[in-house]
Design a protein around this nucleic acid. Sequence first.
RNA 1: GGUGGGUUGGCCGAGAGGCGAGGCAACGGACUGCAAAUCCGUUUACACGGGUUCAAAUCCCGUACCCACCUCCA
Length: 468
Amino acid sequence: MTLHLYDSASRELRPLDPVVPGRVGIYHCGLTVQGPPHIGHIRKELVFDVLRRWLERSGLEVTIIANVTDIDDKILAKGRERGESWFAVAYENERALHAAYEVLGCRPPTYEPRATGHVPEMIEMIEALIERGHAYPATDGSGDVYFDVRSWPDYGELSNQRIDDMQAAPDAPADGKRDPRDFALWKGRKDDEPESASWPTPWGRGRPGWHLECSAMAAKYLGTEFDIHGGGLDLRFPHHENELAQSRAAGQAFARVWMHNAMLNLGNSKMSKSVGNTLTVAEVVKRVPAIALRYYLIAAHYRSIIEFSEQSLAEAATAFERIEGFCLRAAELVGAGEPGDVPADFAAAMDDDLSVPAALAVLQATIGEGNRLVADGASVALADTLASARAMLDVLGLDPLTWATQGESSATADALGQLVDALVAARAEAKAAKDWNRADELRDQLTAAGIELEDTPSGTRWNLKGGH
RNA sequence: GGUGGGUUGGCCGAGAGGCGAGGCAACGGACUGCAAAUCCGUUUACACGGGUUCAAAUCCCGUACCCACCUCCA
């Protein structure tokens, strides 16, 4: 079976049929870097990270392009408000995004083109659209250039809407547009905007319209026809609809499959800055191990809304501890080994539109089997089970044994290890002397410091609770 | 007004006509000096009202509520 994905354009499950056999080109809309990423933003990154890992494990060569929108109204406004340059704001938040990728174990995209670095490509595209009669410079002298939605009969095909049914934007009539739904390909520079935020074009100085950058950059890095275009469901209209119209109107085939992930809600509405219900990745990772946050955000199907709650986050962290506990215990018995093959059921689940919940059920069954084997000590069967579990965890980016062992320096870790080992040894002596009060006192002391003890037939294991 | 999606047990979360996904929590048991961890077992479901069918959480009709988009948004 090959991977089937739900295509939001045709609204059906479709088999992946790469433009170039053996290779997959994916474009997903990155962030407008106007603030640090919140956990809703990062959900999208995780979806595509898992997709990428699964495709690679299936033997495909994957190219992922994720744009960085480093200029827009909000970035300019924030710069003004803070008395900083717009590009300082954009870059600061781009670095925060990369930090979030890293801490959650997302492998970086193949490339992350910035909008401001692709003005020539955009100009070429606008020229092509004007020549073909699908775009026109604003009649009011603003320097804007608009896409003419009435000139493109398929406009609305992605979101299944007809132009006449759409609510007109409230500010539309004034802008020198032929139709209120026409959207900006290019925005003329306004007097109060910094000179550095504009680029020369045949239509005067200005800056990119949001939608155009993705069309231009996708074509540059993936070609005029590519496999998968993705992003959050909130981008389907107008952003993706407009991208599709532009690119097709310019004569390109564009994306074969459109993939949209559902939102992460907090308090019954989408997490977003304008609602004010955001939790940044940096904040949440202070409360719960990053790997547990990753588990939480991945565990639900990507097309299901996640209603965020502290309780469900905490439960996810507990659930993941069982998985982690098995890997650590098994690795102590038989060595970490290498990830092996993924069970057929797991593969079938992943091939079915990335059904991570079903895939996790397979993983949980493997963990249960593994824990039974652990009780009997080292065995070939245990080594095989661990290899299988690790293969599945690797696809999900959740393998505790390869998860970045960042954190404390080894000197700190050594010092901690010696101290804990000494206390564990003291407890063992107390136990041997049947001095249960002393033994429990030592255990309580360690627990209070965040060290968990686990007595096994072969001695006492310990680990730092939430130690990632 | 238009376009999509949703409502499942104490909680999270799959499934899309017939065998009770899975996890968390709870309870009982095994193990333990006692715990923890682990294993075994048990308990609680398909928003509401109709209909189709031998059989409906799943299909159809209606109702209620929720989310997203039509304006910047992952």
